[in-house]
Amino acid sequence: MAQPLSHSAPPRPLLERRLIVVTGKGGTGKTTVTAALAWGAASRGLRVCVVETGRDEEVPGLFGEAEPPVGYEGRWLDCGANVMKMEPYAALAEYLQLQLRIPGLVTRLLDQPSFHALLDAAPGWRELITLGKVWHLLQPPQSSDDHIDLLIVDAPATGHGLTFLDVPRVVVSAVRAGPLQRHASWVEDMVRDPTRTLLLPVTLPEELPVRETLELVARARAEVGIAIDRVVINATEPDPLPPELPDLAQRLAALPTSPVGLPAPSTLAHCVAHRHARASLQREAIAELRAGTDLPFVALPRLDIDADGPAALNTLATALQRPVEPLR
């Protein structure tokens, strides 16, 4: 079972791992964090590979290299990172090819409608084959050209993300002896090895994402046994109100009229009050995160990736690589 992580020593630098699984509630910016990590790793000269598990390819677009699609084969992009899109059927074909070593047989098997029906109804195989491909990519390559230092998986959102990581364990217990069981146990060992693998939860400084992240951390440790050594809080913003102006919104609202050329007093007040209220919520959410876990966190600023592209990725990559202090 999971061992509670000791935080007496500062966490190791992120990029020293072989495998980082990025997860979080939908909309928290998992994919942006994945891209920023890869960007930072590549700019340090690491051979880094990103595995996208979503329906669409998103990371190449964040690098400004959306075309042509990277597909399952993957491609080394100009930024120095390799990106591939997980295709469960392609991965299954590759796996079967490696196991059966007879090309005709694999094609025949995969062409069987009944085999497809079986797969469609069998839960878990997509997750298992995805993690199996990840495991395979991290094995010592036949030639040094294929070597990968760091693999980053943009995993499914929180609830399904943990299920995703737990599939090997379930398969190991559900399937009796045989190659499938053996392979699943290799994958399970990879997931649970704290020297190689890290789960990186991404959250927003908002109440519900924080609460979900705390549940995720607890379940990941108790059920999956994967290492977590920090939480990323994405899209943080400073409070715009200086301490000496705590009541600026009320003062603006009380103006009889705005100076000519400005929005109405109520609109001015609304903008100030809104920005301040969101900042207060952010403080509360971060306090809840602090109270609920012994993990240190990395705060990323809110940036507009679409507008600022590489400059924004650089900023995020630098912040992600900064050493984190243990909380206790």
């Binding site: 196991q99 009796r176 002896a177 045989g178 190659p179 499938l180």
Partner: peptide, 9 residues
Amino acid sequence: IERISGMGF
């Protein structure tokens, strides 16, 4: 399938 999954499966 059995070559991969083992008999029991």
